Simulated scan of single mutants.
Amino acid sequence: MATAIHWYSLCAVTLFLKMFALSAYQGFHRLSRRTFVNPEDAEVFNKPPASAELPQVQRAAKAWLNDLENIPIFLGLGTAYVLTGASPEAATWLFSTFTIARILHTLMYLLGLQPWRTIAYAVGIFCLLGMSLNIGLVLYRLS
Rank of each mutant, 00 (worst) to 15 (best):
W7E: 08
L10Q: 09
L10G: 08
C11L: 06
A12I: 11
V13W: 03
T14L: 11
T14H: 00
L15I: 03
L17A: 13
L17P: 03
M19I: 10
M19N: 09
M19A: 05
F20A: 15
A21H: 09
A21E: 12
L22K: 05
S23E: 06
A24P: 00
Y25M: 06
Q26S: 10
G27V: 09
G27T: 12
F28S: 05
H29M: 03
S32T: 15
S32C: 03
R33Q: 15
R33M: 10
T35D: 03
T35W: 08
F36I: 13
F36E: 11
P39D: 13
V44E: 11
N46I: 08
K47G: 07
K47S: 08
P48V: 11
P48D: 14
P49C: 00
P49Q: 08
S51T: 15
E53S: 11
P55G: 07
Q56I: 04
Q56N: 08
Q58F: 06
Q58T: 15
A63Q: 05
L65G: 14
N66V: 08
E69D: 07
N70I: 05
I71F: 03
P72N: 06
L75V: 14
G76L: 15
G76A: 13
L77G: 02
G78M: 09
G78I: 07
G78H: 07
A80P: 00
A80H: 02
Y81G: 05
V82K: 03
V82S: 07
L83S: 12
G85A: 10
A86E: 11
S87F: 00
E89Q: 13
A90Q: 12
A90C: 00
A91N: 11
A91V: 12
L94G: 06
L94W: 04
F95T: 11
F95N: 10
F98V: 10
F98P: 01
R102K: 07
I103N: 01
I103W: 04
L104N: 04
M108Y: 13
Y109E: 01
Y109P: 02
L110F: 06
L110M: 11
L111H: 08
G112K: 10
G112R: 09
G112E: 12
L113P: 01
P115I: 10
P115M: 09
W116Q: 14
W116L: 15
W116D: 04
T118F: 06
T118V: 12
I119N: 05
I119P: 04
A120W: 02
A120E: 05
Y121K: 00
A122N: 13
A122E: 01
G124M: 01
G124W: 00
G124Y: 02
I125T: 14
F126C: 15
C127E: 06
L128V: 11
L129W: 09
N134M: 15
G136Q: 02
G136T: 12
V138W: 03
V138L: 07
L139Y: 05
Y140K: 14
